[in-house]
């Protein structure tokens, strides 16, 4: 297991100081996607605005950026 940090850049920025353990980067990114969707879902339920450019960043413990997940990449819309 490797420690990754999932930082949120939303209406407020939340840095993940504690980190979470995942078997690999793919699993950490999958959790970042799940987290983004979780926050978007709450925004929908409470009638808040969703900014598609808001994002999650996955870093290693040294703070090196490994992956970025934009809110706009994890939801689909159709007219």
């Amino acid at each position: 297991m490797t420690r990754y940090h999932l930082n949120l850049f939303n209406d407020t920025d939340i840095l993940d100081e504690e980190g979470q353990d995942f078997p690999n980067i793919a699993a950490a990114v999958a959790e970042a996607v799940r987290s983004a969707r979780d926050i978007i879902a709450e925004h929908v339920l409470t009638g808040r605005t969703i900014h598609l450019q808001h994002r999650m960043e996955v870093t290693d413990p040294e703070g090196r950026l490994l992956s970025t997940v934009r809110f706009g990449d994890v939801v689909r819309f159709e007219q």
Binding site: N10, T12, I14, D16, Q20, S35, D38, I39, M56
Partner: peptide, 13 residues
């Protein structure tokens, strides 16, 4: 029943 990221956001609030 939520992701840790979401929970941290709530606790920050």
């Amino acid at each position: 029943g939520m992701t840790p990221v979401h929970m941290n956001r709530i606790i920050r609030g």
